[in-house]
Design a protein around this nucleic acid. Structure first.
Length: 470
RNA sequence: GGCGACAUGGCCAAGUGGUAAGGCAAGGGUCUGCAAAACCCUCAUCAUGGGUUCGAAUCCCAUUGUCGCCUCCA
């Protein structure tokens, strides 16, 4: 069984191949840094983190490049609004974004290039397009000549004549074709600008990604990823620019994640329904966000809401439960029950791989993991020893790790964790009360701790407690 | 107006020709002093209408509905 990936370019699941054997060149469009990242960004980052982790687990060496677009109209206008230097503002949000990713347990990219550090490459590419008449300069601006590109629209499946450019935005009449897009924009006074053969200015929106790809990964890459809202025009234009210069197929695979929506509406500033990553993580563990993504197809929309959130919380509890230790007094499983457990572990391992190989079918992979969870729980309640549980639990850890789940026991942060010793004391006292069959008082202790977020579980040989996840 | 995606039980969600994975919730049971956790059992014929086929959730056509893109967007 080999990995198959849904390719936006071909609209089918194609067998995965790489340009260099065993190595993957993966580029994912990162954010334009002008505001706090929201959980939609988180979804995209998590999707490609999972892709990356699975490819690495499958034995590939992954060169993962995720860019920051750090010069752009929105950054400039936000900076003006705040009276802040646009570069300082961009840096602030880059640091912020990197921290968000770390908090989400997203593995750092191999490289995080930035648009502002690629000016030579950007200008070289524009110059070559001009030389080949694939672009034209007007009053310090440079535009890509769409009409000269017979493949334009290959990714988004559009034809030039079908698109009604300007229906919602004023068309610049200096353009030869309304669909022509800017490679270089002349600077207005007070804007950040770089010298260029066409006058002072800055790059257009799409060229920076073409340049960063070209510079850091080469003329051709294996996978290009991003949100499906980038298919047109951003990715279409990236292809146009790069292929205009190389005359080679730019990316073999184009992967696009679906949008996270709130009550069937896309998150947007105008609707005022943005939930930032920071805000989310202040209320939920990172694993919950990841489980939200894992529970469905990465290509489809993810409808965010109270109900799915609660379900993800429950799922996380169940996963955590699988890691509970064996009963110290366990009698041990019979040889054939033990063998059965091993067989189940092997079976779920192949089911996991089969699901993931089918275009990263994470909900199928999760189902395989749950089969293992059930087997582990069954074995534990049938008296498996910790030695007997060790192997299936290590398989469980391996696969949840491939999906990027941390599965840490919840703990109460900061000063509250100093309470642990006191809670231990209360729980011990309660055990004494139970030994005396003083149910009224022992239940009072349990209820009291429960209301403080501490859950007690009684076992044959004593009681354990844990912080309630919230 | 153009392009595209999707529609599976109360909820989330796999499944592209042979009679529906998994999870959450719910109900019943075991365990427990009572709980909690865990375990066992129960719980769908796949938007609608046609068609192809021995046989379709899975292929084709139509209808309805939802969403995305065509402007900045992960």
């Amino acid at each position: 069984m080999t990995l198959r990936i849904y390719n936006t370019l071909t609209r089918t699941k194609d067998p995965f191949t790489t340009i260099e054997p065993g190595k993957v060149r993966l580029y994912v469009c990162g954010p334009t840094v002008y505001a706090e990242a929201h959980i939609g960004h988180a979804m995209s980052a998590l999707v490609f983190d999972i892709v990356r982790r699975y490819l690495e687990w499958s034995g590939y060496e992954v060169n993962y490049v995720m860019n920051y677009t750090d010069v752009d109209d929105k950054i400039i206008s936000k900076a003006n609004q705040l009276g802040e230097d646009p570069f300082a503002l961009a840096q602030r949000y880059i640091d912020d974004y990197a921290q968000n990713l770390a908090d989400l347990n997203v593995k750092p990219a191999t490289l995080n290039p930035r648009a502002t550090q690629e000016m030579d490459c950007i200008q070289n590419m524009i110059a070559r397009m001009l030389e080949q008449n694939r672009a034209y300069a007007v009053d310090g601006d440079v535009y890509y000549r769409v009409a000269a590109d017979k493949n334009y629209g290959q990714l988004s499946g559009r034809k030039l004549e079908d698109m009604n450019a300007g229906s919602r935005v004023q068309v610049d009449d200096r353009k030869e074709n309304p669909m022509d897009f800017a490679l270089w924009k002349s600077a207005k006074p007070g804007e950040p600008a770089w010298d260029s053969p066409w006058g002072k200015g800055r790059p257009g929106w799409h060229i920076e990604c073409s340049a960063m790809n070209y510079h850091h990964l080469g003329e051709q890459i294996d996978i290009h990823g991003g949100g499906n809202d980038l298919i047109f025009p951003h990715h279409e234009n990236e292809i146009a620019q790069t292929e205009a210069i190389t005359n080679k197929q730019f990316a073999t695979f184009w992967m696009h994640n679906g949008m996270l929506t709130l009550k069937n509406e896309k998150m947007s500033k105008s609707l005022g329904n943005i939930i930032s990553i920071k805000e989310f993580l202040s209320q939920h563990p990172a694993d919950v966000m990841r489980l939200l993504v894992l529970s469905g197809s990465y290509r489809g929309p993810l409808v965010y809401g109270e109900d799915v959130l609660n379900q993800a919380e429950q799922v996380l509890k169940r996963l955590l439960g699988a890691k509970k230790p064996a009963d110290p007094d366990a009698q041990g499983l019979s040889a054939d029950r033990d063998q059965h457990l091993k067989d189940t572990a092997a079976k779920t391992a192949s089911a996991f791989k089969e699901a993931m190989d089918d275009d990263f079918n994470t909900s199928g992979a999760l189902a395989a993991i749950f089969e293992l969870v059930k087997a582990i729980n069954q074995a534990r309640s049938d008296g498996a020893t910790s030695a007997q549980l060790a192997h299936p639990i290590s398989v469980f850890n391996e696969f949840t790790g491939v999906l990027g789940l941390k599965l840490e026991e919840p703990s109460s942060a900061g000063a509250e964790s100093d309470a642990n010793a006191f809670i231990d004391l209360l729980v011990k006292l309660r055990s004494d009360l139970r030994a005396e069959k003083n149910w009224a008082l022992s239940d009072k202790v349990r209820d009291g701790l429960k209301s403080l977020g501490v859950v007690i579980e009684d076992h044959k040989d004593g009681s354990s407690w844990s912080w309630e996840r919230n």
